[in-house]
């Protein structure tokens, strides 16, 4: 299996590479268009800020490359948010693969923002979650979330219910970090690799 990880100006990319290695898959970290297009799987990871990330992708034409990929693609955290239509984080138009919009958590007086820690995902609507217990715990770190919408394939509740994961055609996105979510995360990554 030939896995490419999109190289761009976002953090936490090494951890994804290592997580795949633990599953016996060696991935290439690249921004080369041909390598991305030819890979069997593409992972679009990232922790960072939306407008800087989009500007970086556009400069290198990666915005068009990513949204026209035809193999299974998995966006993680910021990667998932950038696949949405728009992010409220510095008013950033995004890639519009998913129809959902990304907005900021609003303070409710009790819950801390950003959300940091382990939360449950539920309402599994994809093979990505095959073999998981109901309400499995995953690790989240984020201050913005994708609203519920037609592409939602799993839900998490923090302040309000929102999209823990999205899917449209060959594009998948998860708000949590499977590479940091212990055995549950490993299973989700394996399920992504196993997509037929």
């Amino acid at each position: 299996m030939n896995v490419a990880i999109v190289k761009y100006n976002a953090g936490n990319i090494l951890s994804v590479t290592y997580a795949l290695e633990r599953l016996g898959v060696s991935a290439v970290l690249t921004d080369d268009v041909e390598l991305l297009q030819k890979a069997d799987r593409v992972i679009f990871p990232g922790v960072g800020e939306a407008s800087n990330a989009m500007a970086y992708l556009k400069e290198r034409n990666l915005d068009i490359v990513i949204k026209t990929l035809e193999q299974p693609v998995l966006g993680i955290c910021l990667g998932m948010q950038l696949l949405c239509s728009y992010s409220e984080e510095n008013n950033t138009p995004c890639l519009s693969v998913f129809d959902e919009r990304v907005v900021s958590f609003l303070p409710n007086g009790t819950d801390k923002i950003p959300q940091v820690g382990w939360n449950t995902i539920s309402g599994y609507g994809s093979t990505l979650f095959n073999g998981l217990v109901p309400d499995a715990y995953c690790y989240f770190v984020h201050g913005y979330y994708a609203a519920l919408g037609p592409d939602t394939i799993a839900t998490t509740h923090y302040i309000l219910p929102y999209s823990a994961a999205l899917q449209k055609n060959n594009f998948y996105g998860v708000q949590f970090h499977p590479e940091k979510s212990a055995a549950v995360g490993e299973k989700i990554l394996q399920n992504f690799l196993d997509i037929k």
Binding site: L14, A19, S181
Partner: peptide, 11 residues
């Protein structure tokens, strides 16, 4: 840090 990241699957 690099060695830890290679082995550990939690934050």
């Amino acid at each position: 840090a690099k060695k830890i990241a290679g082995v550990i699957n939690i934050p």
